[in-house]
């Protein structure tokens, strides 16, 4: 009867059965809200982001926040040990997380973390990549598509320039990085399905 929300941001992934779904959700919300606010602050620091209309800023953040968080918290996933360290400091094995109902989403997250981690990005490269991730989010609901495309183009150019100038002998890194964008889209969809399942059938 325990209610499970096995998200690394959740400080109490397994709640006692006595707690209502609403209470479990509100407690989880308090855990993810600071992380979401940090993504908004990060977005505001992206040169050009605040020149977009507020409506489009909200749309990009709505569809891109999870993806940015996935990149940011990639290091919580240890593909070698097959463990995930939650923000509450507790480390869970792959087996125990499977038992908590994390199946294909978890596999995809490990896969993504391993691929991104293998690229060995520097912190500033990672930040620029997260900016690209955010402005590459789902365009549904975007009004000024041209302005978003222009910003995306500028950020991709900046990322390519940074990476190729640092590693002139490795022409494969930048394309490999761009290939992670569709992975993140897929992860985003899987994650949304998981959350909706909790909300519909708690």
């Amino acid at each position: 009867g325990a209610k499970v929300l096995a998200c690394p941001l959740n400080s109490c992934p397994v709640a006692p059965a006595s707690r209502s779904s609403q209470e479990v959700w509100e407690s989880f919300s308090q855990c993810f809200t600071p992380a979401v606010k940090e993504v908004v602050e990060f977005a505001k620091s992206i040169p050009g982001f605040q020149t977009l209309s507020q409506h489009d800023q909200v749309m990009l953040l709505k569809s891109g926040t999870f993806q940015v968080l996935m990149v940011r918290f990639c290091s919580l996933f240890d593909p070698k040990e097959r463990t995930v360290t939650f923000l509450n400091g507790q480390t869970y094995s792959l087996g125990s997380l499977r038992a908590l109902g994390m199946g294909s989403l978890l596999d995809s997250m490990f896969d993504f973390s391993e691929k991104l981690g293998s690229l060995g990005l520097e912190p500033d490269e990672m930040a620029l990549f997260m900016a690209v991730v955010l402005v590459s989010a789902d365009r549904s609901g975007i009004v000024e598509v041209g302005a978003v495309e222009q910003l995306q183009e500028n950020l991709i150019k900046a990322l390519r320039s940074l990476i190729t100038s640092r590693r002139p002998d490795d022409s494969t890194l930048f394309p490999k990085l761009l290939l992670r964008l569709p992975d993140l889209r897929t992860l985003n969809n899987q994650h949304s399905d998981k959350l909706l399942a909790f909300r519909i059938d708690p």
Partner: peptide, 27 residues
């Protein structure tokens, strides 16, 4: 339930965080 971000309260958090910024700039 077609829009998870709205239903999860994410949109509210985002709007408030962005609007906070507008208020900061006005100050």
């Amino acid at each position: 339930f077609s829009d998870p971000a709205s239903n999860l309260g994410l949109e509210d958090i985002i709007r408030k965080a962005l609007m906070g910024n507008l208020e900061d700039r006005q100050e």
